[in-house]
Design a protein around this nucleic acid. Structure first.
Length: 560
RNA sequence: GCGCCCAUAGCUCAGUUGGAUAGAGCGUCUGCCUCCGGAGCAGAAGGUCGCAGGUUCGAGUCCUGCUGGGCGCGCCA
């Protein structure tokens, strides 16, 4: 809007040349337009240009006043006008307020989580699920048509070892699998014969042994079910489950092999393995130059199956093909991309996240050094339930439990999602179970307070068209300005493929609201105009917070 | 050894495309429940933005080198 006004007065200037920022101090104005970039383009000193713009552009439609601070143009907005625009736009969109609808008509395929079907997921695996799931919610919010895929790694060494262990056990439950898995790995380490039997199973399953295949299927389905039950607790949703075992001996592999051969990138090494030499495809380094497709006994490697799977995903024809991967897969994904591109298939867009570490060091499912997602959730729920029971002893037990569940999910999802995926995080149970300060429950609490006010108001919201929107006090005006940022925050999150910025914005917004809450009485406001304005503002903040939290997969209880 | 990622207050993290005085929370200290919900609020203390150079009107942000941590580097997935 401001940009458009400036553009109209200056030829050769585009909207994109102008960006608005928030002045460092509210006394300077509501919106600030730095002139640096535009000055460069027009080859004028920023300070001179600022004066020129201030003199020649008429901001009176939107701004109370315009002032100059060196190279900055600071505007004080017409509060009632600005608020009316904002409120009517936001209330028209409701659950969609904040969406820029940038994905309308576009299709996205995204794969995430894809845990090996062995043990109960630890918090590190949960990070992938939460990042992926939130991205899905963000994309759908922006009107993309999204299909969520989960790759079930139902083949490979680790499953083979589990299958072997099962021979000696009597129908173990999912909860016992972690222990069995750890034992299997210790045993394979110590007993090469045991490990060899595992590889043998893999070769047999690929040659079509139905009995072995069924044994693999039974164990992986049991594990998958157990894992999904946990993932469901944190709200992760999937549309399709693609089984790795469906991608062995696929005819599409010959397309790839032909392409690699024509580039001289495929060879059989001295130990009879089928190997890709990536240096022939433009890979620049010695380290990571080779990529093994098949073992000497002819059985396929993980990457071989994954190539076919990648092609299948690509063939579904989505506008965007995304996958969320741990940082340990970076080189692997790069290698895969080179091979796919050599065969004429575009590679998926990858989103990486770093590991969650423990104070004692890194987690490892293989060695059993893990903090399980279930254990964090259980503890968080127990603490939340205690608190809710103390506060609302009259609520039905089921309702209290539901609130506790929502609070627990908020605590863990928010703690994980608000930090940038590129950062290693050190998991600390005490911090994860804290509901104070910059946490998910704090934002939920903020929502519960607003709901409480709206319950007490107990009548229809004031009419937008007749409301005068008086926001004279700093506390309420700052809140209006903060809410107005929401669509840009969403846009930026989409661009960065990360919801972390949304989490941090919501914390900010919740803080600004709570300051307002303590400064500006709503139900007992002095004038009717003020009361109506504030009620509407409360409703708008609630809509913004709950829309934002929904993107993070966090619900907002009516009371807590 | 080589490559990628990370380093901001005692701790956990924000910090827009390079822009005005680097911000929150936890912890510490001081106040605040006759007042719309104290899972809260107001305030204080706490910083050579890992180190050293460079680019420029201007660097936490970009470039180079170094240090420390994470990840990876041919029959794991």
């Amino acid at each position: 809007m401001i940009a458009r006004l400036i553009v109209s007065g200056f030829p050769d200037v585009e909207d994109a040349d102008i960006q608005c920022t928030v002045p460092p101090s509210p006394e300077l104005g509501d919106v600030s337009v730095p002139m640096f970039q535009l000055a460069k383009k027009l080859r004028k000193p920023p300070v001179v240009l600022a004066k020129e713009v201030a003199d020649s552009v008429d901001f009176s439609a939107i701004a109370e006043s315009v002032s100059l601070a060196g190279p900055y143009l600071n505007l004080i907005l017409k509060r009632d006008y600005f608020a009316k625009q904002l409120f009517s736009r936001a209330f028209a969109k409701k659950e969609k307020w904040g969406s820029n609808a940038s994905g309308a008509g576009k299709k996205v395929l995204i794969e995430h989580t894809s845990i090996n079907p062995n043990a109960s997921p630890h918090v590190g695996r949960g990070r992938c699920a939460m990042i992926g799931d939130s991205l899905v919610r963000l994309l759908r919010f922006e009107d993309y048509d999204v299909d969520v895929h989960y790759y079930v790694n139902d083949m490979g060494r680790q499953i083979a070892l589990l299958v072997l262990m099962m021979e000696e056990l009597d129908n173990p439950t999912f909860d016992e699998i972690l222990e069995i898995y750890v034992k299997a790995n210790v045993r394979a380490e110590a007993d090469p014969e045991f490990a060899a039997r595992g590889y043998e199973l893999l070769a047999r399953i690929e040659s079509g042994d139905e009995e072995i295949r069924k044994r693999f299927f039974d164990i992986t389905e049991m594990c998958l079910k157990g894992q999904l039950a946990v993932l469901q607790r944190i709200g992760a949703q999937y549309d399709f489950f693609d089984h790795e075992s469906n991608y062995v001996n696929d005819p599409r592999l010959s397309v790839i092999e032909k392409a690699l051969q024509s580039k001289g990138a495929l060879f059989t090494d001295e130990e009879a393995r089928l190997v890709v030499d990536l240096s022939k495809l433009g890979y620049p380094l010695e380290e990571g130059r080779f990529f093994v497709l098949r073992r000497a006994n002819g059985s396929s490697m993980y990457g071989c199956r994954d190539l076919i799977y990648s092609i299948e995903k690509q063939e579904k024809g989505a506008d965007y093909n995304l996958m969320v991967l741990g940082e340990d897969h970076k080189l692997y994904a790069q290698q895969l991309a080179l091979i796919l591109e050599a065969a004429g298939y575009p590679a998926p867009e990858t989103i990486y996240y770093s590991y969650i570490l423990l104070k004692e060091g890194k987690m490892s499912t293989r060695s059993g050094k893990v903090v399980l997602l279930t254990s964090v959730l259980d503890q968080a729920e127990a603490i939340a339930l205690e608190k809710v029971t103390e506060q609302f002893p009259d609520l039905a037990g089921a309702e209290r439990e539901d609130i506790a569940r929502q609070v627990a999910v908020a605590a863990i999802r928010f703690a994980v999602l608000r930090v940038k995926p590129s950062k290693n995080v050190v998991f600390d149970m005490e911090t994860a179970l804290s509901f104070q300060g910059d946490t998910g429950p704090y934002i939920q609490y903020c929502c519960a307070r607003i709901r409480s006010i709206l319950r007490k108001w107990d009548q229809a919201l004031p009419d937008l068209s007749s409301c005068a929107f008086a926001f004279d006090e700093e506390g309420e005006w700052r809140l209006v300005l903060k809410v107005a940022d929401f669509p840009d925050i969403v846009k930026e999150a989409l661009l960065l493929r990360s919801c972390a910025g949304i989490g941090n914005y919501l914390i900010d917004l919740a803080h600004v609201f709570t300051t307002f809450y303590h400064q500006c009485p709503v139900l007992t406001a002095k004038t009717e105009v003020q009361q109506e304005s504030r009620i509407l503002l409360c409703a708008l903040v609630l809509q913004t917070l709950s829309n934002g939290l929904a993107l993070l997969g966090i619900e907002t209880p009516e009371r807590m």
